[in-house]
Design a protein around this nucleic acid. Structure first.
Lengths: 132, 132
DNA sequence: GACTTATTGCAACTCATTTGCAATAATACC
DNA sequence: GGTATTATTGCAAATGAGTTGCAATAAGTC
């Protein structure tokens, strides 16, 4: 399903800002600041409020996923992928995707907790090749 | 080592606010707001700036650990325990500690990533007994 | 092409956390 | 114990990510 159809299915419209923000997100997981700067590089004047609102809509529609890192800034990336986690470089902030066998994880958690576990958040930190 | 000694070892001083904030943290992992409210219950007037600064010092000294949850509020708890993770109730926000076999985790991550992995952040979300 | 209403952009706001600075109080030294 | 040194406190003001109100604009519909 194209992004335009996903939007239309819920009464959302396809606009230039939405298209451009989507395009920018195709390249890498990014924070709002990075998205803004990438839009500016393409000579596109889009307000940050629009970026925030667009991302919120995209998340609602399942087009984008939001992740919080320890510095409290949200990072957004296209959601058309498998469930996965991130490795963040302590030095340069670069983000790499990583896939793990989740079963172990939630299994183990369910055994050790009195809570009914529904989801989790997992991120790794370290050094990327360049910064090592 | 007592907290006073840990402080002194780095040129920090033991003060009433620090002692009280430490006492409050003995009971449970808490956010700054909760710490403030617990201090007020004890009729202690301590400025929130002082709470923030004290927590920063405690973290530097390894007395306290800071964890970020997805709603972006930091939660602080005494660090004199084993490395562990948290389960947060989606409804009431209650936090429970959980211990897991970490080896699996970092092993698996090291295999799948080009990064040199140094640490990780893992939290679970779900429902506690009451809220289920 | 005109109409309806979602979307945009601006300004102003929120809320957790931080910073500057003068007043205060722990420690060290006599 | 009294005093000097300097870490710490509390207040006010600033910061910075993210949100909200509202009038102007522009998709999609007929």
């Amino acid at each position: 399903m194209q992004i335009r159809e996903k939007l239309a299915a819920k009464g959302y419209r396809m606009t230039k800002p939405r298209q451009e923000i989507f395009n920018v997100l195709c390249h890498a997981p990014q924070s709002v600041l990075e998205i803004m700067s990438n839009l500016q590089k393409k000579k596109l004047q889009i307000d940050k409020v629009t970026v925030y609102r667009t991302l919120t809509s995209f998340v609602k529609l399942g087009i984008v996923e939001e992740t919080q890192f320890k510095d409290k800034i949200s990072v957004y990336e296209l959601a058309d992928q498998k469930h996965h986690h991130h490795v963040v470089c302590d030095t340069c902030g670069k983000i790499e995707d990583i896939e793990l066998d989740e079963n172990l994880l939630e299994e183990a958690a369910k055994k050790s907790s009195t809570f009914q576990i529904k989801s989790h958040h997992l991120e790794f930190f370290g050094l990327c090749r360049k910064c090592r």
